[in-house]
């Protein structure tokens, strides 16, 4: 198929038609922040962090396929404000205590909060009462930290297989629900690690193994989120 032209932040790029705007931007060194997106899983556009102005409308870059002569803005003041507000909403909605979290330094939410220089959310904390589910021998589920991105739900072996993780309830009372019976049966160390890696925050933690890498030497401790894509970013 012939290539198309897409304009991102005032510059033309040639791209494959149908490819998602997020991926085209990434290929060209333009970082668009994401949370619910995970390489290799079908995107779903629920965190709304990757919202861009696409042909004049706010659309999620992870779910919008590129078309010829599409005009995309990724980093206007308005968009950055939307993103930082969403990060703040997530901090206010859950119970995120970074210093005590195994994922600190490897956490995408924390890393985005640093990117947006959040000191304290503009919203009052809700301090919801949430459970810690430690019943499974391999993994621990901390609902306090879950941002409901559905990455664990969507990362199944096969689309038609019974689910390990699902949503339960709706609205602000939605939470991840785990099929313990199935996970007990199917989860080995490798799958447990995979589940933990899939989670952007510290909601899924592998048991019997932790703090392999000391705090201070973790992924985003060294390089801010997105710095592997965009250049010229410093902490």
């Amino acid at each position: 198929m012939s290539k198309i032209l897409i304009n991102i932040n005032g510059k033309d790029y040639s791209a494959e038609p149908g490819k998602m705007v997020l991926d085209i931007a990434k290929e060209n060194g333009i970082y668009i922040p994401t949370l619910c997106h995970y390489e290799g899983i079908k995107p779903q556009g629920s965190c709304r962090i990757c919202t861009c102005k696409i042909d004049g409308r706010n659309m999620t870059a992870c779910t919008t396929p590129a078309s010829h002569r599409m005009v995309v803005e990724t980093n206007t003041e308005e968009l950055e404000k939307i993103r930082s507000t969403i990060v703040e909403l997530l901090f206010a909605e859950g119970n995120h205590f970074c210093p005590a979290c195994e994922r600190s330094g490897n956490c995408e939410l924390q890393a985005l909060a640093y990117r947006y220089k959040m000191m304290v959310p503009q919203f009052p904390y809700i301090f919801p009462s949430k459970d810690l589910d430690a019943e499974n021998p391999k993994i621990l589920i901390d609902h306090n930290r879950c941002i409901l991105c559905k990455r664990c739900i969507r990362r199944k072996k096969e689309p038609d297989n019974p689910s390990w993780f699902v949503f339960k309830g709706r609205g602000h009372t939605t939470q991840i629900n785990v099929d313990h019976e199935l996970i007990d049966k199917e989860f080995n160390d490798e799958l447990a690690q995979k589940a933990m890696d899939t989670c952007p925050v510290g909601a899924i933690i592998r048991k019997e193994k932790g703090f392999d890498v000391p705090i201070g030497e973790r992924k985003y401790d060294k390089n801010p989120i997105g710095s592997d894509i965009e250049k010229g970013v410093t902490l």
């Binding site: 779903q44 629920s46 965190c47 709304r48 962090i49 507000t85 969403i86 909403l89 997530l90 206010a92 909605e93 919203f123 009052p124 809700i126 941002i147 409901l148 559905k150 949503f167 309830g169 709706r170 609205g171 602000h172 009372t173 939605t174």
Partner: peptide, 21 residues
């Protein structure tokens, strides 16, 4: 709207609660 939000998008799920408060 808080009651009826599906809970998928962050702003709808969380902001409606902030609006109410």
């Amino acid at each position: 709207f808080i009651e009826e939000s599906c809970g998928s998008c962050v702003p709808c799920r969380a902001m409606t609660v902030q609006y109410k408060n």
